[in-house]
Design a protein around this nucleic acid. Structure first.
Lengths: 221, 221
DNA sequence: TCATTGAGGATTGTCGACAATCTATGTCTG
DNA sequence: CAGACATAGATTGTCGACAATCCTCAATGA
């Protein structure tokens, strides 16, 4: 992912991607000894890596009881989506106010690429993965709010990606999503913060509604 | 603050309050050796404590260069206030939907106490400190969103309290603040999420506006 | 049969020392 | 005299071992 200046960072990076990809199941125990034999080094950097994972809410650590890969209930997942919905709508509003004209036109070009990818039917899977993320990432950057960027990209997104395989969300309707993206960019281009926020809110709301439907469904059992 | 099951947690707790109280100045270096001689123990728990501080954004750590108490620019402080404004308004909206009737009446009683405190002119300083925090804390709890609670109380509030001495904000107008609090509770009691959110947004906006005024002022120099 | 309790083993927390890296001071050169 | 470079000191990253704590599971008693 990024350059690792120290062994602890390297282990952290590998463990983080392993968790996000689901190679380490939620609730699975992270034994320091086992990690030492697997990743090399001594326990000190492994402990540091685990603590960094805890800082990003990817693992839960209990004193004298070790660390486990975070295992979220549907309620907690709903909480996260709720916060994400609010923060990313906010980011979109701010982006409409603060993005430079150059950034906006670059964003338009990105969507044109996406349109071609979908039309060619090749990049359909691409659009489900990085393409969608690229778009949202640029909006967040456009908010010019470093803390907002940190919270959304640093903390929430890892967990959301981790649980994505569960939730059949917007990524399964690329054409619809693209149209919504285009309207959002239009609102940003016309410097209409309220509309931009509203459109983004609706765009993300689909995922949250799906999740809450499932939540209600499981509650009946 | 809370019970420390391990030495690292104890050191972390003490360092955190020291930083929030300003006993450790922003930008000040945290030498591991110095902390060892001051708090006892060995470097291992001190390092762990420092890393926990980094996780809460109270210190900044650079590989091979040590840790420093976080020193925020006014822009970064604005970013934090902006996010807090959004999240706490959201919390207020959710609280209007999800707080139990008992919690609401308890909140009303809290405000009655505050009113008496101010009238007696004794608790004026109290209201500036914990009283104000108590109110906001209960609203956040009332949102029933654990992640929202974690973000606001765990991360943002420590930093905001840390920089409070700089910003002459709403805490200097206790009577006005109390009235706003009462109106917010009214909106919650009448289960009007939109109004509750709006009132909370205005209530906090004062601080943000003050900050941005100062920001603009310093920009001219 | 079930709850309690007490080793035993395994795991985490802590320690002191060594290696790798950065910072600062002083020297040398243009 | 200014700037680059090298050396020395200090600081952080890593290591292996020891101490403290928890979990397991079998034995015991009601």
């Amino acid at each position: 992912m990024s350059e690792a200046q120290t062994l602890a960072e390297k282990v952290f990076s590998e463990l983080a991607t392993a968790i996000v990809r689901g190679e380490l199941a939620p609730g699975e125990r992270l034994s320091e000894q086992a990690l030492v034999t697997r990743y090399g080094g001594s326990r000190a950097p492994i402990r540091e890596a685990i603590q960094k994972l805890e800082a990003r809410n990817l693992v839960v650590r209990v004193p004298h009881a070790g660390a486990r890969v975070v295992s979220l209930s549907l309620e907690e997942l709903r909480d996260i989506y709720e916060v994400r919905l609010e923060l990313e709508s906010m980011a979109c509003r701010l982006a409409a106010e603060r993005m430079s004209d150059d950034e906006i036109s670059a964003l338009e070009k990105l969507l044109e690429e996406h349109a071609r990818s979908i039309e060619a039917d090749q990049g359909l899977s691409y659009y489900q993965k990085s393409g969608n993320l690229d778009f949202h990432y640029r909006i967040i950057e456009g908010s010019k709010n470093s803390r907002l960027h940190q919270m959304l990209c640093g903390d929430l997104y890892h967990i959301i990606r981790m649980y994505r395989y569960r939730t059949s969300t917007s990524s399964e309707r690329p054409l619809q999503a693209l149209k919504e993206h285009q309207r959002i960019v239009e609102a940003i281009k016309s410097r209409d913060p309220q509309l931009a926020e509203l459109l983004m809110r609706r765009h993300i709301q689909v995922s949250l509604t799906n999740l809450e439907t499932r939540l209600a469904h499981e509650a009946r059992h």
